[in-house]
Simulated assay, not measured.
Amino acid sequence: MPQEFVGKGWSFPVRADETGRIALSSNEREIEESIRLILATAPGERPMRPEFGCAVHDYVFAPADATTAGAIGVAVRSALRFWEPRIEVEDVAVSFDLADAGCLLIDISYVILGTNDPRNLVFPFYVIPREESEVPS
Rank of each mutant, 00 (worst) to 15 (best):
L104E: 05
V60R: 03
A42S: 14
L24F: 04
Q3L: 10
G7T: 13
S26V: 05
R77P: 13
L113Q: 10
G7M: 03
R15E: 12
V111T: 14
F96R: 08
L39G: 06
A66T: 06
A64M: 06
I72G: 02
I72F: 04
I112N: 00
F52C: 12
L37Q: 05
I38W: 09
I31T: 13
I31K: 12
Y59V: 01
S26R: 03
R81W: 10
P129V: 07
S137C: 07
S95Q: 10
A66H: 11
D97F: 00
R130S: 01
Y126M: 15
F52Q: 09
R77Q: 05
M48R: 07
H57I: 05
S133Q: 02
L104T: 06
A93T: 06
A93C: 02
T115P: 00
I72E: 02
I31R: 11
P118Y: 14
R81A: 09
I38R: 01
V6G: 04
V6M: 11
S109C: 01
T68Y: 01
A42H: 09
L104N: 01
G9H: 07
T67G: 12
P13G: 02
S34F: 02
D107S: 09
L98H: 14
T68A: 06
R21K: 11
R119E: 03
V135D: 00
E45D: 06
G73A: 06
G70A: 15
D17F: 04
G102W: 09
E30Y: 02
S11P: 06
F82E: 11
E132S: 04
E33V: 11
N116I: 08
E90N: 02
S25Q: 14
V74E: 14
P129Q: 03
T19A: 07
C54S: 14
A71M: 07
A16F: 06
R15S: 15
S34W: 08
L39I: 04
P2G: 13
E30M: 02
S11V: 10
E88F: 05
F82Q: 14
V92F: 11
F52R: 05
W83A: 11
F123H: 10
E28L: 12
Y126C: 08
R77M: 14
L113P: 01
F125V: 14
R86A: 04
A64R: 05
E32A: 15
W10R: 04
C103W: 12
E28R: 02
E30W: 08
D65I: 01
V60Y: 12
N27Y: 08
P43E: 03
A62N: 03
T115F: 00
E4P: 15
E4V: 07
V76G: 05
D58E: 13
V122P: 11
K8S: 13
S34M: 07
A93V: 15
E28T: 07
G7I: 01
I72V: 09
L105K: 12
F125T: 02
P50S: 13
V76N: 06
D17P: 12
L98K: 04
R15T: 10
E90I: 13
I22L: 11
D100I: 09
L105T: 15
I87H: 07
S109Q: 13
P136Y: 02
L98F: 02
G70F: 01
E131L: 01
D107I: 12
A62L: 02
A79Y: 07
A42K: 13
G102K: 08
